[in-house]
């Protein structure tokens, strides 16, 4: 089932000097249910514009977006969405608990369920102690965690998170990554934007890379990592005769272990030699380009 379907989405802004800015050009994207999709791009690439169009904050110049089959322009489409805005800001005259109560009632949650879920998400986001303090006294990281708490509160099927790790310390980032993994384990769909490639590598099933308003690539993270293998580091325990390995660079390690590097093309030939020489293989480790290299190649490509 399609959780999110974006067809030909474009956004053109008119500038004051009668110029135009193509913030988004003909974006086509389908996110399946239960998928964790990372929307990666440099600052100003169009990530937030896409999310704002999906959430109804801006009207696309062309194209449309469907949320679980319902047009994004219909407020009911947001009933099954947990949304975290970029650099969130919430009514600061309310306490964290009061704000969550407002969110819960906005999603028609029954009173008993709302109370228990509020305590649950406050606890999960480590905000229980600050729950009855006005939001105006919260730190940036606490507001970000409250943002995640309000997105989780009504247990939606789809999560749209705009830079969820922004403004968080390493502990907070780990918390969010674990949360995304946990949500995925429960079959939830997560669409999140980021400009940090390590976040994508850590939690995503698929990644879409957007540059200058254009979607440059969409692929499985696993597949990108596999395609990016350039060679292997192999640790071999030899019987002493290393003449068979002439032509392969190696470093001698302690206890008779030789550390070889072989390119992807020569890997098969190398392993045949290993079998022929009756050596013991201690470790085979792929050497690969990471998502960052892939991302940088795409960004630099004109």
């Amino acid at each position: 089932m399609k959780a999110l379907e974006i067809t030909g989405l474009s956004k053109i802004y008119k500038t004051k000097k009668a110029g135009v800015v193509n913030a988004l050009s003909d974006l086509n994207l389908v996110i399946s249910s239960g998928e964790v999709f990372g929307f990666l791009g440099p600052n100003g690439a169009g990530k937030s514009t896409t999310i704002k169009a999906i959430m109804g904050l801006i009207k696309p110049s062309k194209g449309d977006a469907l949320i679980a089959g319902v047009p994004a322009s219909d407020p009911h489409s947001r009933l099954n969405i947990g949304y975290l805005p970029e650099n969130p800001s919430f009514y600061d005259f309310l306490t964290g608990r009061e704000y969550l109560y407002f969110i819960g009632t906005s999603f028609h949650m029954a009173d008993n369920l709302l109370k228990s879920r509020t305590n649950e998400v406050l606890d999960k986001m480590e905000l229980s102690l600050a729950a009855d303090r006005p939001i105006r006294g919260y730190s940036k990281g606490m507001v970000q965690r409250l943002g995640l708490a309000q997105a989780l509160l009504h247990d939606p099927e789809i999560y749209i998170l705009d830079e969820p790790m922004s403004g968080l310390d390493p502990l907070g980032r780990a918390l969010v990554k674990n949360l995304i993994k946990e949500l995925k384990a429960h079959g939830k769909t997560i669409f999140f934007s980021t400009h940090i490639t390590a976040d994508v590598e850590a939690v995503c099933d698929r990644v879409g890379i957007i540059v200058n308003g254009e979607l440059r690539a969409v692929d499985k993270v696993e597949s990108i990592l596999e395609k990016g293998i350039t060679g292997y580091n192999i640790h071999v325990r030899t019987g002493g005769d290393i003449s068979l390995f002439s032509g392969f660079d190696f470093t001698e390690r302690d206890s008779g272990i030789l550390e070889f590097y072989t390119s992807r093309a020569l890997f098969k030939q190398f392993m045949e030699i290993v079998v022929h020489a009756n050596c013991e293989v201690d470790l085979v480790e792929p050497v690969r380009k990471n998502i960052e290299s892939f991302f940088l190649e795409l960004v630099e490509k004109r």
């Binding site: 407020p75 805005p85 009514y91």
Partner: peptide, 14 residues
Amino acid sequence: EKRYTSAVLTLPYS
């Protein structure tokens, strides 16, 4: 001004 709209207008309200 305080960007509350990005939180409240993305709730299921018209």
